[in-house]
Design a protein around this nucleic acid. Structure first.
Lengths: 145, 145
DNA sequence: CGGGATCCATGGTGATACTG
DNA sequence: CAGTATCACCATGGATCCCG
């Protein structure tokens, strides 16, 4: 997602509202900032898939590798680490041979999963509308190569 | 967000569930796919900020430039085009001199904005918990540089 | 089995300058 | 005012090999 890790506060600029002009200061932009935090955390290409899988119950590394489908060993590891770091995943290591590691979604992650349903519903409701809008746009303006 | 536009279906692999083993096939992964669509559309670094601003009423280009704060002319233009293309923003041009362009959020975008509130609430609820988890993780493992 | 380490391609993004 | 054009950077992610 956002690659430059420059921590632009995204705004929270009190002062005149951006639009309308009726709002005294733009709380919306603070909102936007918060949402971006979430998105930067969960917006990774693979985070959702992993989170979804782990929300059903404990998952092992190799299971995820097959499960998420398309993910590389590297990205799986990286994403798991980040999710664990943020307290969204719990990592339990069994000191056996061969090693066994289980990942479990934390309560926080489970809540997040529920929140994502709202977004999912939105996407499903307007999926076709958006596709049409896109097609229409490409028809009028130059088709994207 | 995910930059490679490689359309990996993210899964929808029916068969044994990834976790638990109780679910017959993983509808969750199909879910994940849908969510990713949304995130790829809205997950851009600036989309939210623009959407939020445009949700309050018609906004002009320069207003957005000040409003979103940190955005470059280039990215503003690009993000606006994408949002317009997806039917989330409506662009009205006044053929005057100097030119005047107004961007307005479409009904779809307004619905999306409402959906984002759910995510925002989640972020606000667990913001500190996540920060602590992250700090704790960095304390145990090597602090990141 | 579950990673870590390294090399490398892609393209999203910012800075700057120019235009109708 | 509202863009477009060009350049260069670097984070993201893939591939491969190795290790405990």
């Amino acid at each position: 997602m956002s690659q430059g890790n420059n921590d632009v506060p995204v705004s929270v600029d009190r002062g005149q509202a951006c639009a309308g002009g009726d709002a005294p200061f733009t709380p919306g932009q603070a909102r936007a900032c918060t949402v971006r935090e979430v998105l930067d955390r969960v917006g990774g290409k693979w985070s959702i898939g992993i989170l979804v899988a782990a929300s059903q119950g404990p998952v092992r590394f190799t299971e995820l590798e097959r499960c998420v489908e398309g993910i590389s060993r590297r990205m799986l590891t990286l994403t798991l680490r980040n999710l664990e770091r943020d307290g969204l995943l719990h990592r339990r290591v069994y000191p056996t041979v061969p090693p066994k590691v289980e990942y479990t979604a934390t309560p926080i992650a489970l809540e997040l999963y529920e929140s994502l349903v709202t977004l999912t519903n939105w996407a499903e409701r307007h999926r076709t509308a958006i596709a049409e809008a896109r097609a229409a746009y490409d028809r009028e303006h130059g088709t994207p190569s």
